[in-house]
Design a protein around this nucleic acid. Structure first.
Length: 145
RNA sequence: GGAGAGGACCGGGCGACCGCUGGUUGGCGCUUCAUCGCGUCGACGGGAGGAAAGUCCGGGCGGCACAGGGCAGGGUGGUGGGUAACUCCCACCGGCCGCGAGGCCAGGGCAAGUGCAACAGAAAGCAAACCGCCGAUGGGAACGACGGUAGCGGCUCCGCCGCCAAGGCGUUCCACAGGUAAGGGUGAAACGGUGCGGUAAGAGCGCACCAGCGGGCGGGGCGACUCGCUCGGCUAGGUAAACCCCACCCGACGCAAGGCCAAACAGGGGGCAUGAGUCGGCCCGACUCGCUAUCGACCCCCGGGUAGGCUGCUCGAGGCGGCGGGCAACCGCCGCCCUAGAGGAAUGGUCGCCGCCACGCUGGCAACAGCGCGGCACAAAACCCGGCUUACAGGUCCUCUCCGGCU
RNA sequence: UGGGGAUUGGUGUAAUCGGUAGCACGACGGAUUCUGAUUCCGUUAGUCGGGGUUCAAGUCCCUGAUCCCCAG
């Protein structure tokens, strides 16, 4: 099993609607500030969610396959997110499948946790060096000219 | 037993743990006078298909438009039924294919008009005539008999001899006019087929039979149509899924339709004298009435309306069973049942056992048995129905046809 | 959800009213050249699939496939 069988200390794998990206505005905000990471299975675009927990967004285009295949991908992504959400950083994660073939749950879960970990490191590197602390898209106040 | 035709149906099963979602229901929190509502944690029992698909037709439903009718545009096309409706379904008619069970196709009109037919061919649509056949009739040429006649000339002038027509007739030749469409060849297609007569040669020119067309009469059928008899003229080609004519049907748009609530920002009107009223479609303006208070902002109210939310949203031309009518499609009556309602979009994830299929290994003469490994289709509601079309691993059942074997 | 368009050799594209599917580049072979390039000659290979109408279909009709675009 991927998730530890006794992982019911905080959340035992629930997946409420609050853990999902549902609106176009939320997707647009993520893409505007995104950090990206990808491997052979997935591409993830992410930004800090500003909440206590991560949130999942799904983008599965028609190029992946027909409706049955797209639904299969989305269900696997939700399952992988649900079973591993206690290990994920508190970010909005927009997941995009990269291949047509249907993967196994293990592949998706491994890819998701590994990429989320990389995104957490990237996010921390971006937040720390300027030390301005505002964290938004404030341009650095150095005098360029 | 083999080969095939038509139709109906199923399209994995059981279980464990963890999730999602609509319903009912319980606890807690927020809110409220309260209900309601929101959040959260439980319980119970629901939760994709035969095609849910493609979106090719038809309807319901919705607001909008609309007197009637016509034009334009689009669709349909054997007949009779079914249906809310259809390009669908059923039955029958006709044509083609198949030994057969059966399958496929489609209206009428190119004997209203316009158009098209490459190449080949003499000629492609109304008749003409390339090779050919004939040349009867007309024309030309040669020969023959009439006839060595008429006529002319000579002489020995009864007469005889020499030269020698015209004309029509007959035979042969020419193929000029003309006749012909049988044969040749081209083509997808060339103005019926076979035989006999007929002719100069031929031809429906005549006749017999056959094919086809039209009319009449009679039988059958609601009808498409069909059967029989008879008469006629002997034929009037193909293509309308070419333009078109004829008959019938269609208002266009679509649940992101439509309805309700409604934040923030901006803006409109008012509270507030730059007011109210009249003229006027509106602004400006004019007139009448009212009023004499510094201006502006904050603030408050009203309506439109965006984000967003709710609704439309699932009880329906509904399903199952029985009886009755009908060849059938289908219809009527009675009884029972409620069976998905999502919205960045749920209906799932993982595992175990069973089932089916293929492969490998072992045992066995074989049927088969055991083990291992892999696979189990197509395709997912998006307002709802009726059809059509297309995709589909594997499997079940029914009816029928042909061939072979045995009894 | 609704609407529109496209599909022709390996690639990009023509084909009037239905009548021999052309052109360019490419590939291959040959000639010219000492060799290569250029040039010349020749070859290769095609109407998205399946049915239908027609004597004949890239074209007309039906049905499917793939791709692109537009509106809300």
């Amino acid at each position: 099993m991927v998730a530890d069988p006794s992982g019911r200390e905080t959340h035992r794998g629930k997946f409420p609607r609050a853990s999902r990206l549902l609106r176009t505005a939320e997707f647009d905000a993520t893409f505007a500030q995104r950090l990206s990471a990808g491997d052979g299975v997935l591409v993830i675009h992410a930004k800090p969610s500003g909440l206590e927990h991560p949130r999942l967004g799904l983008v599965v285009s028609r190029k992946v396959g027909n409706a049955v295949r797209r639904n299969r991908w989305k269900r696997l992504l939700r399952a992988a997110f649900r079973l591993n959400q206690h290990k994920l950083p508190a970010m909005d994660l927009v997941c995009v499948p990269r291949q047509r073939d249907e993967p196994t749950l293990l592949e998706v879960a491994n890819s998701l946790t590994r990429l989320a970990d990389k995104l957490r490191q990237k996010s921390e590197r971006r937040a720390v060096p300027p030390a301005s602390g505002s964290g938004e898209a404030v341009p650095p106040p150095q005098t360029g000219c």
